[in-house]
Design a binder for these strands. Structure first.
Length: 748
DNA sequence: GCTTAGGCTTCG
């Protein structure tokens, strides 16, 4: 795998195995194209004009999605940049007298940029142009691309064949309503539709006459992207595809469809109803958080959910054996009439089985049923629940009946989270560190993984002090009675910890202004990228531009000497792809024709899978100045310095509630968190293995579902200090000089 | 091997 650049010489395909529809090594070879290209950096093309192609040309062969997407878009004279290829023997070398090897681009790692030269060192990347047909213009028997508004949908359901099926009804400005059937064996490749009014882009769908009307059906190479339909919300494509194309034109089409749809009455009366507005016997859509679930029998699963609103009708309680229950419903929420019991039947059981407690769900066409549940276990319970509201998701898919997980950053869920947070049952302190504390309230206290206690209890963990001072061990009661500053040694158990969603413990810290901020999620960063796309000046002809320093050495040879400024026509996803090929990627924008990094809420530097952030308060961007004179090696520090960015450092912040029989104490894990877990926070931000290590440590200290008596004892070194807030002084505690060690068990 | 479904309330 390497990086090559060159100019397209010929686009005739001479590959012997080039047949439409052929399967090659598990990849569906939809088309295949070989491109002879000059194996020279573009700066040398002019001086090498008279070089014979036999000595300078090589075949590139594209497979699968790349072939599909790029074969039509490449033309003679185009500039190419190719990464992630493998080098093979060219079977046509004898015949075409070209290079004995060829470059083969296949799979997810292969990437190709097609460019037309704009001037030395800067290229506009040409992408495939799709044309979209208005729904009223569809003729039977052709493959087309369409953009439309979803007016009806069913979540994917199993067919009698090999695939899942999504059934949709769509419409566009032509006012034509068209049915659409999507067959696909992979659930994740089905359109991600959350509600009516969502926007959908379909590529390569086949028109078909059915019952005298045109309908759309998936065809070879089908792909789909969806968008939120709300006017003014960011245009963020929802797809699992890694190679989809999305540009400024797409934004405009989406926005036009949104505006048009807003003035139509396409969507029936709001099907989304909170529990507080549910009428008995009606069908409605519910957006909620899953608290717990339990299998009832082979055709029925119980979901305990809430949406933070209080139902005016008493809610039915459904009793299940505690050992069959996954997740932690709380009695207090039951008592407050906040927990809704949803019985999910038949085809939906398979879907519900994938859900994890804590996730956010939307349940479509839920039936509010008054009257006691007929579950056998309820008969033994004396409480009279006549007239209490239970909820049934009946079998079948009529009226779009179904359910799905919603991403946590979707707008509806952000609203829901705000509501749920007002139900905080734990009092969260507000010292300076807790200002950034995004830990959800007790109600979110649900483990990410549902490992049972029996899975984890056999693995023992030791927690040891690494400090060299000899301080006598004291009780927590003693600790609280003494005034800081002071250092203590304690032997304690973990009662609880926050955040339970461990990725929320990742923070960014500024050494200069001492502030801590959260690491933004991909949707936030992706939004900043699409914002920046709007700012790119008129010098760009509607595409994004790769600006390379045109190093004397090719980028592949000494990656640490290369800094790439990436003009943000690129999406976050594309930037990540490029970052995996180049060593340092700085996304830039040019609002007034001057290149400048994006808003510092976004990473200013991408390298491999790592992202680096700058402090918004302390950075003083050097705009328009020449970059990196005298810099030999580009690392995050030198890049930050060259850009005038105050580099933020990754850290882990957790709050541990400790107990030892004499009392409880809340202590922060911050300064020495990395040595506590034996991971670097920077790794934890980018590396699953490091994240797993933190999760495992917490699972061992506090096994899910365990009683406190079952948890290991820890020897901790505690540092007590004073925090001043609102003129009041308060003692705070931090765990320091302490590390975990797997494999030994401490007993009190 | 190239279909499957083709919206339109379960009945627990």
């Amino acid at each position: 795998t390497s990086i090559s650049m060159g100019t397209v010489h010929d686009t005739n395909c001479s590959h012997p195995s080039c047949w439409w529809g052929e399967y090659v090594a598990g990849l569906k070879l939809i088309s295949c194209n070989s491109i002879h290209f000059l194996c020279l950096p573009p700066s040398e093309v002019d001086s090498q004009q008279n070089m014979s192609p036999e000595h300078s040309s090589i075949n590139i062969i594209l497979f699968g999605a790349l072939a599909k997407d790029y074969s039509e878009s490449v033309s003679q004279g185009d500039m190419l940049l190719v990464t992630g290829f493998s080098v093979g023997n060219s079977p046509t070398a004898q015949k075409d007298k070209l290079h004995a090897c060829n470059l083969q681009l296949a799979g997810n790692d292969a990437w190709m940029y097609v460019s037309t030269c704009l001037g030395r060192g800067s290229y506009a990347v040409k992408v495939v142009k799709y044309t979209y047909v208005p729904l009223s213009d569809l003729k039977p028997g052709v493959v087309v691309n369409v953009y439309a508004v979803v007016t009806f949908f069913k979540q994917p359901f199993r067919t009698k064949g090999t695939d899942y099926c999504s059934t949709l009804k769509i419409t566009d400005q032509s006012n034509k309503k068209v049915g659409c059937t999507i067959f696909c064996d992979k659930l994740e490749e089905h359109p991600k539709i959350f509600k009516m009014g969502d926007i959908i882009r379909l590529h390569r769908v086949k028109t078909q006459l059915f019952n005298g009307a045109i309908s759309l059906l998936t065809s070879h190479g089908f792909s789909v992207v969806t968008f939120d339909g709300m006017v003014g919300s960011p245009v963020i494509p929802r797809t699992s595809s890694e190679s989809f194309k999305f540009g400024e034109e797409d934004c405009q089409v989406v926005e036009a469809l949104r505006t048009w749809a807003a003035n139509q009455s396409l969507v029936p009366a709001q099907p989304c109803v909170p529990l507080s507005a549910v009428q008995p016997t009606t069908y409605f859509d519910l957006t909620c958080q899953l608290l717990a679930k339990a299998p009832v029998d082979s055709s029925c699963t119980l979901l305990k959910v809430w949406d933070g609103s209080k139902c005016p009708h008493p809610l039915l309680d459904v009793f299940v054996e505690p050992n069959t229950l996954e997740g932690s419903p709380t009695l207090s929420k039951d008592m407050a009439n906040l927990t809704a019991n949803v019985l999910v039947y038949d085809n939906h059981v398979e879907v519900a089985r994938q859900f994890k407690p804590g996730s956010y769900l939307r349940i479509y066409n839920l039936h509010a049923v008054p009257g006691a549940s007929r579950l056998p276990s309820n008969d033994s319970v004396q409480s009279d629940q006549t007239g209490h509201l239970g909820f049934h998701l009946h079998g079948g898919t009529s009226y779009g009946r179904g359910l799905r997980v919603l991403p946590e950053d979707s707008p509806d869920i952000l609203d829901l989270k705000k509501i749920l947070e007002t139900f905080s049952e734990s009092d969260i302190n507000d010292s300076s560190m807790f200002e950034v504390w995004s830990t959800p309230p007790e109600s979110f206290g649900i483990p990410l993984q549902s490992a049972s206690y029996s899975d984890t209890c056999c693995m023992c963990i030791g927690v040891e002090r690494t400090c060299d001072h000899t301080v006598e061990q004291v009780s927590l009661a003693e600790v609280k009675s003494r005034s800081p500053p002071q250092v203590f040694h304690v032997q304690v158990q973990l009662k609880s910890y926050q955040p339970q969603r461990l990725y929320q413990s990742l923070k960014l810290f500024c050494h200069k202004c001492k502030t801590i901020r959260d690491v933004p999620d991909d949707v936030t960063v992706g939004g900043l990228f699409s914002e920046a796309q709007k700012d790119v000046g008129p010098c760009n002809n509607g595409y994004w531009t790769l600006v390379l320093p045109l190093p004397r050495e090719p980028p592949s040879e000494s990656p640490s000497r290369t800094l790439t400024l990436l003009m943000s026509r690129a999406t976050l996803e594309e930037t990540c792809r490029i970052a995996s090929a180049y060593s340092n990627i700085v996304p830039v924008t040019s609002p007034q024709g001057t290149m400048t990094p994006l808003d510092l809420s976004a990473p200013f530097l991408f390298r491999g899978t790592k992202r680096y952030y700058g402090c918004k308060q302390c950075s003083q961007l050097k705009v328009g100045e020449s970059l990196g004179e005298g810099v030999d090696v580009w690392d995050e520090k030198s890049v930050a310095e060259a850009l005038g960015v105050q580099l933020l450092q990754y850290g882990l912040l957790m709050k541990l509630e400790l107990q030892d029989g004499t009392g409880f104490l809340e202590a922060l894990l911050w300064r020495d968190a990395e040595s506590f877990f034996h991971v670097s926070a920077e790794d934890a931000a980018a590396d699953q293995e490091a994240q797993d290590r933190v999760q495992e440590t917490m699972d061992r200290l506090c096994p899910p579902g365990s009683s406190t008596a079952e948890r290991p004892w820890m020897d901790l070194c505690l540092s007590a200090y004073t925090v001043e807030e609102n003129g009041q002084r308060r003692a705070c505690y931090q765990i320091c000089h302490t590390g975990t060690r797997v494999g030994s068990l401490h007993t009190p």
